[in-house]
């Protein structure tokens, strides 16, 4: 599918990195969810954000995309300050959040159309891109089904389509492959790869290390609201695999002999 960062959504400052995060912090009551995160996502990179459950990945990405107001810190998308000029910044970004609802009483087709029209796109462009996206994500046969009746994987895919409709120059995807079947996941990876090779930037959060190691060129390991390591995937993992390096950084591996009764022989 010819998805590339469109001229309208093109970088305002092409020379500046796709996403710059400085000193981002958020506290929920007693709990510090994000504790001073710095990240640089270069333009044209495929960036993986990995971390254990509750590490602050979703909170960081929510603050980076203008969905959650940070207590401290700043975020720039292609040089545009997200919290000072939110409307401009949001034009550059396509977002797939995790753990939120969709307007699920719309059909899949209506939902993606809605996302396009909300961004002020004209009807013909929206219709054309909706058809393309539904085909690319293998949702054409279910386009008229209500999203509330979709399976978890289909719901992810329709949300991804809503994030792509305006051809953003930065894609922020929170757990995009969760519950998605392997064929669809491969299709999505193809779409994202061609998007990156045409100059777009992607940041994905995941806890599937293999996937990040194969798919991404950059990675950051985040735990307890702090960045433990960041850089190109090769820099982060060194000599070992990303998974081993991740476990080494984060800790908490349970190596004791356990569940002996579970062995069947």
């Amino acid at each position: 599918m010819p998805l590339s960062p469109g001229p309208a959504g093109g970088p305002a400052f092409p020379e500046s990195p796709a996403l710059v995060i400085r000193g981002l912090a958020k506290r929920f009551g007693e709990k510090i969810a994000v504790n001073g995160v710095d990240l640089d996502v270069p333009t044209g990179s495929f960036y993986g954000l990995v971390g254990p459950n509750g590490a602050g990945k979703t909170t960081t990405l929510s603050m980076a995309t203008g969905l959650l107001r940070p207590d401290h810190g700043q975020v720039w998308v292609h040089g545009v300050d997200v919290w000072a000029r939110p409307l401009e910044a949001k034009k550059l970004m396509g977002i797939l959040p995790d753990g939120v609802r969709l307007f699920d009483r719309l059909t899949g087709e209506q939902l993606v159309t809605y996302a396009g029209l909300l961004r002020g796109m004209d009807r013909d462009t929206v219709a054309e891109r909706v058809a393309d996206l539904l085909r690319a994500l293998d949702l054409t046969d279910d386009a008229g089904t209500l999203v509330v009746d979709y399976s978890a994987g289909m719901t992810k895919k329709i949300a991804l389509a809503s994030a792509l409709i305006h051809a953003p120059s930065l894609l922020v995807l929170d757990e995009p492959f969760e519950s998605v079947d392997p064929v669809s996941a491969a299709n999505i990876r193809d779409i994202l790869n061609s998007y990156v090779s045409s100059g777009g930037s992607v940041i994905v959060s995941s806890h599937v290390m293999d996937l990040v190691q194969r798919m991404c060129d950059h990675a950051a390991v985040i735990a307890a609201g702090t960045v433990l390591a960041a850089g190109t995937v090769d820099e982060v993992r060194g000599d070992s695999s990303l998974e081993d390096r991740f476990v080494e950084l984060v800790g908490g591996r349970n190596t004791a002999e356990g569940l002996t009764w579970l062995r069947t022989s």
Partner: peptide
């Protein structure tokens, strides 16, 4: 399963954010 083609109210309101 229902295929695409019925945008309902979306095709009857103006293609603006307000209409959407």
């Amino acid at each position: 399963r229902k295929a695409a083609g019925n945008l309902g109210f979306f095709s009857r309101f103006p293609a603006t954010p307000t209409g959407a």
